[in-house]
Amino acid sequence: MTTPESIRDALLSSPKVRPTGAGTKPALSQNEPGGLSLSLSAYQGITEYDPGEFTFTARAGTRLETIAAVLASHGQYLPFDPPLVQEGATLGGAIASGLNGPGRYRYGGLRDFILGAVFLTGDGRLIRGGGKVVKNAAGFDFPKLLVGSLGRLGVILEATFKVFPLPQERLRARADGGSLAGGLELVQRLSLQPADLECLDLTPEGVVWLQLAGDTGTLAPRLDRLGRRVGAIFAPVDPTTPDDPDRLRPGAALTVKVPLTPARVTRLDAALTTLHLPRRYEAAAQTAWIGATAADLPALDAQLRQLALGGLSLQHAPARIGQWPSPAAENIVRRAFDPDGRLA
């Protein structure tokens, strides 16, 4: 399917439809029995890119890897640091899943960079929301609504994003907080510093990983000064060591996202300790990423419910575990977006 018309025809051919991309997050694209899987992966291509505008527009099936490479050739990047880029994740899937990587700490998540979207409603209307310029306050912000919608409100066809210039250099470093509590305390001190960190991650052992980004030659002195200011010893990290945070990036090893606040880390971590699950706390402990197999999910689901937390499982169904936010607002918008419940 390579035209909006053919995609719409396919959409309307079945009473139950699940839009899919490259399938890098299988639990999110899993379909109900009898439902139609509507693959957008052939609908690809960057349709507009003007580096001087800091914006690009691409079709939903375009691979993030392709986009990242084109952006990089013009010294730009996706600041929300989407996961599963090398694995083949598509732009549409990134929007629908609403996932961000550790680099979201600096400038915000995907929701903060999406500017416009063209999509099909559940009953097949082609709608354009937002715009193609970096600033726009006209009309309802449908592009943001689609972020995290899991394909259940509309079929995303095309989207426009804001991008930023790539930093000249990056520097990774770690400091040992000695324990989860010690590490958490260090993360909180760091998060109040005007240090412009790109990433600020925490391991359950209390190791704090951070990443600086900026002009050549400025990062080592910045790290040095930051360490003195917060009373920590930061060791620059060789990115090829086995401890490289990339090994534990969201998506592959860590498969469940749990939105979090720093105050809730301790209790969650205690629960995950009893379940023996690998995890990492990202963006100054605003997200937990947890590694869970299909067999782990029921117990994780129960623990999250007890803690009034919700999770999104990418690899193994069910995708929605723990206590999710009330669907009341989603149910209201569905009346307009998907009146027949085709995508629900």
Partner: peptide, 9 residues
């Protein structure tokens, strides 16, 4: 949290 679940209502 700065992260959320579900559509960004």
């Amino acid at each position: 949290s700065v992260e959320s679940l579900g559509p960004d209502c």
